[in-house]
Design a protein around this nucleic acid. Structure first.
Lengths: 245, 245
DNA sequence: CCGAAATGTCTATTAGTATAGACAACTATA
DNA sequence: TATAGTTGTCTATACTAATAGACATTTCGG
């Protein structure tokens, strides 16, 4: 694959950013696994058809992310190469899904609130608009790197202690279990991809211009009664969503 | 929601492009449905904290896409507002899935080839590397607007007439049926989101900087023998993927 | 028919992006 | 210990993006 890779000019997206994104993609695809290094700047410049300085801007951005490290005289070595495979199925659960791929996973509670259910949330949970629900905002990380941030809603009538239980047990599944729900299944998932907004950039420690995949999901108990409405934003360059049907 | 919306400076992504993307998102979210118009330029400029000229650049890009039309003295009216919901399940089929959402769907054959199966394709189809397979490149459209482009591989030994049948029947499902495969199911789907490359920009008629969702999927016959390996790129701002588990 | 509100056009200035070339500094190897 | 190959730094120039302000043009309602 020696073909010129595609960068477009006058698009509102700077060449160095397009190139940084493409190199990041190549790294996670394993294109440079043989050497563990990014090709020399001058080679990349030829591949992309740009000046060497432009490639340097791109590499510098990747170095800021901690993805690569340039060493004078040697080259630019790859520090990290992550794209976690995240399963989505009827039995989707966060911590379980990553089993084996990361040494350590963590879900951090950012905020909680009790509030009346608004339109979309009420419809998803099949409760009357205005009925009280609990909102939990989480950031999930693997090996200390944020992977996703989510906002979940639970019917307060059925799970009044959701926030406390989660804080103690650090797991949605366990918090459900502690409140008498032993099992639940995913009944609906919708995906959309878009640019990350400022809040997401901060929470997920993304570099500006990054992409998030937004999954809007509903979990229900075995009888099909909704128990959770959630909207999860994944850092698109760190995950691959694997759909098991 | 009068809060300042988030645009980031010095990120390699021009402000006008970020703003164009955010306005496009608002349009498809239905934020402006009451009036059918985008807010006045001066209001948007205040919301995003930028100069009016910058907003004009963003709106001009959206006008080029045909999404909005500015009328002097009146305002900027919304021409189109599309985000097709695309189901992904064991029985995923393109044309069926969009039933009712679009008046007319079309799948156009761009290119075909017979070639030896490479690593990933051979592994997905469970055929020996080097075994012959048929490659079909398609662009799928709804109401004349391209929605996705795909590259599919089929084992030539089993479906030698795939290209001819597809060209005649305009449907993968029917082409399978004509070659003795009455039914098939999706056994694996992996999703990744990234910026569109030059070829995708052209095929999907996207504006540069746009996002694609790449779905790598394997279909199999009822016995579980793989019959199709495909990689489909969806225009992210035109679709919502709905996962039925 | 006037005026408010909206988009269209123009000029000028500053900051960010990209190219070009030259050379310094460092690493590994023959 | 040369030398080729690589990253680091500097200067200069041109183009794009963003801001700022002024004013023209069009539409619509009172």
């Amino acid at each position: 694959m020696n073909a010129k890779k595609a960068v477009e000019r006058q698009t509102g997206v700077a060449l160095w950013r397009q190139i940084a994104d493409l190199i990041r993609l190549s790294i996670s695809n394993g294109d440079y696994d043989q050497t563990g290094m990014v090709p020399p700047e001058i080679v990349l410049a030829a591949q992309f058809g740009v000046n060497r300085h432009t490639v340097r801007s791109a590499l510098s951005a990747l170095a800021d992310e901690g993805l690569v490290q340039a060493i004078q005289g040697r080259g630019t070595i790859i520090q990290r190469k992550e794209r976690l495979s995240f399963p989505i199925s009827r039995r989707t659960r966060f911590s379980q899904g990553l089993g084996g791929q990361a040494r350590e996973t963590e879900a951090k509670l950012l905020a909680q609130a009790v509030l009346p259910a608004a339109g979309e949330v009420a419809a998803g949970l099949k409760i009357s608009p205005g009925a009280s629900c609990i909102q939990l905002d989480l950031v999930s990380s693997a090996d200390g790197r944020p992977v996703s941030c989510s906002t979940s809603f639970f019917p307060e009538g059925r799970f009044p202690a959701m926030a406390e239980q989660f804080e103690q047990l650090r797991s949605i599944t366990k918090a459900f279990a502690a409140q008498g729900l032993a099992d639940y299944v995913r009944i609906s998932t919708e995906l959309v991809a878009r640019h990350a907004d400022a809040a997401e950039l901060a929470l997920l420690r993304l570099s500006p211009g990054a992409i998030v995949i937004e999954a809007t999901a509903i979990n229900a108990d075995p009888e099909g009664v909704p128990v959770q409405f959630s909207r999860t934003r994944f850092a698109a360059d760190r995950v691959k969503l694997k759909i098991d049907t």
